[in-house]
Design a protein around this nucleic acid. Structure first.
Length: 480
RNA sequence: GGGGCUGUCGGCUAGUUUGGUCUAGGCUUGUAGACUUGGGCUCUAUAGACCCCGGUUCAAAUCCGGGCAGCCCCA
């Protein structure tokens, strides 16, 4: 085993393992600026896949892609007080252009509500202008001071931010939950990462929102990761930016708004949830290369028949919409290639050598379980397709089992602290609804309320901390 | 937000405690070639580093200060 491969095991040293996979699988490299990474070919390919999937979804429901400037005048950002308070600690500012000191400094967008909504105010006049449903793919900057980690917490990252304006509260609410469903679909069906959905507490909600819905996944080290959020902004921004329309009733009304986003953080989750001691594992649905064909050839003896057959298989796969590559490099041994493609997480490897050819078969090796099987050459497409489905399913099911295993109901504070320390994961506990309890638990244990479930679970439990009448059962966890 | 650790060829590692005959590796990687090929094979030749700035000193990889970067723990 050489150092081109992964040298620490995921189980023994998760943090080191993550850093190795990120770099050695060509996902990212560190940039010369603290907290910034270079998105390399492997991660960008996954990002493009996510873009493709999400664009398809939102376009079919009438959203349009647009692009707004990355600079936001300070006065805009300040208009919604809670929003400004929430973001100002991590805003990067432009104060100078060339030699000229700017009269008003410009924020590099940490999120674009303010600049977009100031424009909405110009665009919206009549009820006929509504709804407006736009989305943009862009970068945002949040000047993190805490320890940064590739993909999970970086100063600059890529995301999409959707922004909508509606006539009614009901319509806005529907939008929030429709998007939440689309996010869940992408995470579970495509990234094969199971998530819990719910509502954030007031402490954790988006600054300026009425409420925030969230999707939370669990990482193998027992910490929760926020995968995406969809906010109901109510009329908070409509009021400060004066976004009004004349309704059919000829009266002025303020619009109801939503905003929502997912980011390149999803890539970090994918690495952590599926990766193993051989490197990255990419779920077939988001793999830009689903199959690699490695011919087993010999210098002595004629290998042209094997290469010919490999090319034939490649064409056949591509014809059937399976994305495949043929690795016929002569300078590397088959074993070397196996390791390299495993490091990069390609779901299926097809081996074809003299023995296979003689028996008119191929060998299929799956990335998730390392299992090898054989198939007749004429059955290649079918065998590959069903194996891809199986891998996709297996990755999801395995992750789901791990998630469920790490959801623990706790009844008292000692058990809470103990479980958090020894097992991690999500802790279901009763909570009285007071911010003071939430904050005290955070200060004492590091765990925060990740979400309140949509369906309130009936319970007679008392608050885990203060023992007063509890409002509901919520999910706590330590998080990224 | 608080604390700790670390920075040496492309990668990994030793040397720092006690400044000097210190630069080093029989490891890996790159390059050229040979050999091999159903799981990172082997051999030959060759290339390549003390994070940055400043200070102490006759002398700094080593000590001191600052910066930058990375990791870990706690909140």
């Amino acid at each position: 085993m050489s150092d081109t491969g992964i040298t620490v095991s995921k189980k023994d040293n998760f943090s080191e393992w993550y850093v190795e996979v990120v770099q050695k699988s060509c996902l990212a490299d560190y940039a010369p600026i603290k907290g910034c990474i270079i998105f390399r070919e492997q991660s960008y390919a996954i990002w493009e896949k996510i873009q493709e999937l999400f664009n398809k979804k939102i376009k079919s429901s009438g959203h349009k892609n647009v692009y707004f400037p990355m600079f936001i005048p300070e006065s805009f950002l300040k208009k919604e007080a809670e929003h400004f308070e929430g973001f100002v600690p991590e805003v990067a500012w432009v104060t100078q252009g060339g030699e000229t000191i700017l009269e008003e400094k410009l924020a590099i967008r940490p999120t674009s509500e303010t600049i977009i909504y100031s424009t909405f105010a110009k665009w919206i006049r009549s009820w006929r202008d509504l709804p407006i449903k736009i989305n943009q793919w862009c970068n945002v900057v949040r000047w993190e001071t805490k320890a940064t980690k590739p993909f999970l917490r970086t100063r600059e990252f890529l995301w999409q931010e959707g922004h909508t304006a509606h006539k009614t509260s009901e319509e806005a609410k529907k939008e929030v939950f429709d998007i939440l469903d689309e996010y869940k679909d992408i995470m579970e069906k495509f990234l094969a990462i199971p998530v819990l959905v719910g509502i954030k507490t007031d402490n954790e909600k988006f600054a300026g929102a009425l409420y925030t819905t969230t999707l939370e996944a669990l990482m193998p080290d027992g910490k929760a990761l926020q995968m995406g959020t969809s906010h109901n902004l109510g009329q908070n921004f409509a009021k400060v930016f004066n976004i009004e329309y004349v309704g059919e009733d000829k009266k002025n009304h303020k619009v109801w708004q939503t905003s929502w986003g997912i980011s390149t953080r999803l890539i970090g989750a994918l690495i952590m949830v599926h990766g193993d001691d051989r490197g990255l594992v990419v779920p077939p649905q988001v793999a830009s290369v689903q199959v690699v064909i490695v011919p087993i050839t010999y210098k002595k003896g004629d290998s042209s028949a094997i290469i010919e057959k490999s090319k034939e298989i490649l064409e056949n796969l591509e014809k059937n919409n399976i994305s495949a590559v043929l690795d016929d490099r002569k300078e590397y041994t088959p074993g070397w290639k196996f390791h390299e493609w495993e490091l990069k997480g390609i779901p299926i490897r097809i081996e074809i050598g003299p023995r296979d050819l003689k028996q008119n078969q191929i060998t299929l090796a799956r990335r998730d379980t390392y299992q090898k099987t054989n198939a007749k050459i004429e059955d290649t497409v079918q065998a590959t397709k069903s194996l891809l489905d199986e891998i996709q399913e297996n990755l999801y099911v395995t992750a789901k089992e791990r998630l469920l295993e790490k959801i623990t109901k706790v009844d008292d504070y000692e058990a809470f602290k103990d479980t958090l320390k020894t097992k991690g994961g999500f802790l279901k506990a009763a909570w009285c609804g007071k911010s003071s309890c939430e904050e005290k638990i955070k200060a004492e244990t590091g765990a925060t309320i990740r979400l309140k479930p949509f369906m309130k679970e009936s319970s007679t439990d008392k608050c885990i901390l203060c023992n007063e009448e509890s409002e509901e059962i919520v999910y706590f966890a330590r998080s990224y």
